[in-house]
């Protein structure tokens, strides 16, 4: 069964999503910063429990698209948009959609690790505590579970009360992922999560991403083609705010339909 109904002329081969339903669905989406268009005519589906990578030259709108997925643009008064985005069939801009609730369901990890100036424990418990008081035992359990899921538990279990800023950059990034996991998201958006890290930390984060996709839908923005090839199942190539080509990662990398895609990939791979 072919799920994709809308096929923009520029987009690549029809994607066969038959195995998995889509989690996020972007329809005819466009976004401007003031008068300046950043995204236009964007339609794509993000398959559930898979890793989808967004690649493209700097300034092409990858971060902009990612931030649109959990409405982080709401803060910026100059941003205007068209089209719609659906999470599990629900319009995320619908009035009945609470933005805080949306952001809990669609978590986000940023390029530069941004732990809060609190203890490791408090960082992970931060999102939980926003949801009201709960027994300390339960918070303890969730914190441990989240840190284990982010493959950080063994490194920090003896110093949960230490400042999060005392961790290394790679540990901080995994802490931020743990913090996001603790609120139980369905989708995890990662904006160049490993670009500020050393190669070993970067590999750890990649491994973590691969492990998380059994329970989560992941969207990864990266400039590193090898990384996209290693971890993602699907890849979308964006340029100048438009979706150029979208398909299974191996197809896109080995046999792109468009010359533009091929040029970009081979240029970056070299």
């Amino acid at each position: 069964m072919t799920v994709m109904q809308h096929t923009p002329s520029t987009s690549g081969a029809l994607i066969d999503f038959s195995a998995h339903a889509s989690s996020l669905e972007v329809r005819d989406f466009a976004l401007r910063y003031g008068d300046k268009p950043a995204l236009s005519n964007l339609t794509l589906r993000v398959p559930r429990h898979r890793v989808t990578a967004f690649i493209g030259p700097s300034g092409c709108g990858k971060s902009t698209l990612l931030r649109a997925l959990n409405r982080l643009h709401d803060l910026n008064e100059s941003v205007s948009r068209e089209g719609s985005i659906h999470l599990e069939g629900q319009d995320i801009h619908a009035p009945e959609m609470m933005v805080a609730e949306l952001r809990r369901r669609v978590g986000m990890v940023f390029q530069v690790p941004n732990p809060f100036p609190m203890s490791i424990y408090d960082n992970v418990a931060f999102g939980l505590r926003l949801q009201g008081r709960m027994p300390k035992r339960r918070v303890d359990d969730v914190v441990e579970w989240a840190l284990r899921s982010a493959a950080l538990w063994d490194e920090v279990k003896d110093r949960l009360r230490a400042s999060a800023w005392s961790l290394s950059g790679g540990q901080q990034q995994r802490l931020v992922i743990a913090r996001t996991l603790a609120v139980g998201p369905e989708v995890l958006l990662l904006d160049e999560p490993a670009s500020a890290l050393d190669p070993i930390s970067s590999l750890k984060v990649e491994e973590l991403i691969r492990n998380l996709k059994s329970t989560l839908t992941l969207v990864l923005v990266t400039h590193n083609m090898q990384q996209a090839a290693r971890v993602s199942d699907y890849t979308a190539f964006l340029q100048d705010g438009e979706l150029v080509e979208y398909g299974p990662t191996d197809t896109l990398f080995t046999n792109p339909r468009l010359a533009r895609t091929e040029n970009y990939i081979t240029g970056r791979m070299a």
Partner: peptide
């Protein structure tokens, strides 16, 4: 990034 970090957690 600190503010966005908090908002992204549903604050």
């Amino acid at each position: 990034s600190q503010r966005e970090g908090a908002l992204a957690l549903g604050a």
